[in-house]
Design a protein around this nucleic acid. Structure first.
Lengths: 206, 206
DNA sequence: ATTATCTATAGATCTATAGATAATGC
DNA sequence: ATTATCTATAGATCTATAGATAATGC
């Protein structure tokens, strides 16, 4: 009758896998959370691994495509594009705070997926990589941007934006000594990340 | 006869827990890796949880104290102390690349430990926090350092230094498009982290 | 006497499937 | 006829302990 049991299972699986990872998640618990018999889960998805794959691929793609689109506002100059991109990316992570930890952890604990994800990543980053690389080189040549490699620029951004959310529970006691609540802390982090990168990229001899 | 079976178990547990986390690690597999009967593990440590605690507390302390000492070279001015600290901290993480991921993940997946770790963290950071905070305020007042809160400064450093190692397998395909091997890539990251923070802290109007 | 070690197994948990029954679409 | 759903259970795995035996320190 209800074809949306499949969807219920998938949503429950999403929550359970994101929270506990592949190993920590239990199909029994997912079924219970979805309000269906345990056997139903296997009827629709055959194996735990299969169900996990569905969830993981989806999350991986969401994370990747959001990153690419955040920095794809081509009406702006590179520096401004980076500034806007950092803010968009940060806001996205604020709304999906355990996405990066989930993707990184599961990718690491399941090396058999490495090659597949490497391909996916290439096909997401590849198309924009060349054009951004050109823009970056031009801006550096013109003296608008201080010398930096594209790889290091990307990792600077991802490190600063993602780490806060990966380690949020650990950082909380440190942050709460200085900030009133999480919201103001995160707002401050966003501005800090913009600030630190703009200072990195804007040459002092200006 | 051999009292060092206890040590063998602990070392095997360390490797297994670091690699797979609490849930993924199996006491049977730890015992096998240590070359002892499975029953021996319980004889010495009673429970898996107990064994895990020993490993975790040790790792958490190592990570924390190294961070504090890296930035405690009091013969230097604050700016130079930060520069040296970033390098020391980065090198330490290079030698212990899965320490931060382990600590963060296990801390998050075991909330019952939160309060205890919060205390530990306070007692490690507490003593130096006040004096650094004063140094920072003074340097800012003198115009030697551009305005920044201590919390944001700490998180900038930790984000940039730790994230690379947390996500190393994921970053590899991105990095290898531009760098010859991991060693040169990591060397470049260390310099980038020093560079980006020095630029953040050194005012332009100088 | 106490401490260390081994074998064997209880008890819990979890994935997956078999096999029966109910619902649905032609 | 095919698809969806349920109950029951097989089979694998894992933690923990019981109980017997060997080694060690007085």
């Amino acid at each position: 009758m209800e074809k949306d049991k499949e969807k219920a299972i998938l949503q429950a699986a999403e929550a359970e896998f994101m929270q506990k990872g592949f190993g920590g998640a239990k199909t029994t618990s997912i079924a219970a959370k979805a309000g269906v018999t345990h056997a139903m889960l296997h009827y629709y998805f055959r194996t735990k691994d299969n169900l996990f794959s569905k969830v993981f691929e989806s999350k991986f793609t969401i994370l990747g495509t959001n990153f690419v689109t955040a920095f794809s506002n081509h009406s702006l100059c590179l520096l401004k594009r980076i500034e806007v991109g950092i803010r968009l990316h940060f806001d996205f992570l604020r709304d999906n705070p355990d996405l990066p930890r989930f993707v990184i952890n599961e990718l690491i604990s399941r090396p058999e997926r490495h090659d597949l994800m490497k391909e996916r990543l290439q096909s997401m980053l590849g198309p924009i990589r060349y054009s951004v690389e050109q823009d970056l080189k031009n801006a550096i040549a013109k003296g608008e941007i201080y010398s930096i490699s594209l790889t290091n620029l990307l990792i600077d951004i991802i490190s600063l934006n993602a780490f806060v959310f990966i380690a949020l529970p650990v950082l909380e006691p440190i942050a709460m000594q200085e900030f009133e609540d999480m919201d103001t802390f995160l707002l401050s982090r966003k501005e800090e990340n913009v600030c630190i990168l703009m200072n990195r990229l804007t040459p002092k001899t200006k």
